[in-house]
Amino acid sequence: MTPSPEDVFADLYASHHGQVSSRARRMTYGDQHLAEDVTAETFFRAWRHISRHGDSGPGSDIGWLSRICTNIVISHYRRHSVRRETATAFADEGLDVPEPVTTEDVVEARERVRVLRQAVSELPEPQREVVERVAFDEELQTDVARSLGVQQAAVSRRMSRARAALGESVAVRGLVAAG
């Protein structure tokens, strides 16, 4: 009998939580709060995609979780680096740093995300899966190709076709001007 996704996830969590937590702590330079957030987000993403994760042999689970954890930390530091660089650039030019985000900005951003997610959900399955894994889950195209059993060129083509379709779809919905 095949174990349920809940059982698979429970085993994954029990077996690897300590390793993921240690990795997150090391990658966040000992920032306990950030490491806890990264660990939680790692397992949240793993839960969301547990049905797509196949057992590729010894070490595949921790390898998958490590990649998710690493991508989350990289994204965190990139976001914070861009914010610092932007503030520094404004200050270097003698300009005021932009005001904090307003409620209207948040509402508009959420609407954009909703429209984009709706457009992604309407893509053909091969394109949708690649977009979700590469763009949303920040997996490398090579990893996605390997797990799907296709060449990296196929993943690149699917991403390219998805970008074109998404550009048209969001333009039709009035999110952005067409190309």
Rank of each mutant, 00 (worst) to 15 (best):
R23N: 06
H53L: 07
D37I: 02
Q151F: 01
R67Q: 14
D92P: 00
L65A: 04
L34N: 08
D96N: 07
V113C: 04
S156D: 14
F90K: 14
T70C: 00
D137V: 00
L166P: 06
H49M: 07
D92F: 09
Y13A: 14
L34W: 09
A89K: 15
T70V: 10
H17F: 13
G174A: 01
V144W: 06
E108G: 04
R83L: 14
E99F: 06
A153I: 01
G30P: 01
F43E: 02
G94Y: 07
F9R: 05
F44C: 08
D31Y: 05
E108I: 15
S121N: 13
Q32M: 03
G174E: 02
E104Q: 15
V106F: 10
T142K: 08
H49A: 09
D92Q: 14
R26V: 03
A177W: 00
V155P: 13
F43K: 04
R45Q: 15
H76P: 02
P3D: 02
R157Q: 14
S60I: 03
R133N: 09
F44H: 09
F9P: 00
I74M: 14
V176A: 10
S147G: 01
A40N: 11
A24R: 07
S121R: 15
E132H: 03
R133Y: 00
P124Y: 10
D7M: 11
C69T: 15
A40L: 08
A153P: 01
N71Q: 12
G174N: 08
G63H: 03
E93R: 15
G54H: 12
Q127N: 12
S56G: 13
D37R: 12
T142E: 08
P100W: 02
T42R: 11
A178K: 02
E108V: 15
D96I: 11
S160Q: 12
G54E: 13
V120A: 10
A24D: 11
G59T: 10
I50Y: 01
Q19D: 14
P126V: 11
T39K: 11
D7V: 00
R67S: 14
A40C: 06
Q141D: 01
R25K: 11
F9M: 12
E85A: 14
H49W: 07
S60Y: 05
D31L: 01
G149D: 03
W64K: 08
G174L: 04
A177F: 01
R25E: 05
V107M: 03
R48V: 04
T28G: 02
R112H: 05
R112L: 06
S66K: 00
V97H: 01
V155T: 10
G59Q: 07
P100R: 15
G179M: 01
G179S: 08
R173C: 08
A10N: 11
I68C: 11
F136Y: 13
R45T: 05
T142A: 08
A87T: 06
R112V: 09
A171S: 14
Q19E: 13
D11M: 05
Y29T: 02
G94E: 02
V73T: 09
G59R: 10
A24M: 12
G30D: 06
L148S: 02
Q19R: 09
R78W: 13
V97K: 06
D31V: 08
T2P: 15
C69G: 10
E125G: 08
D137S: 05
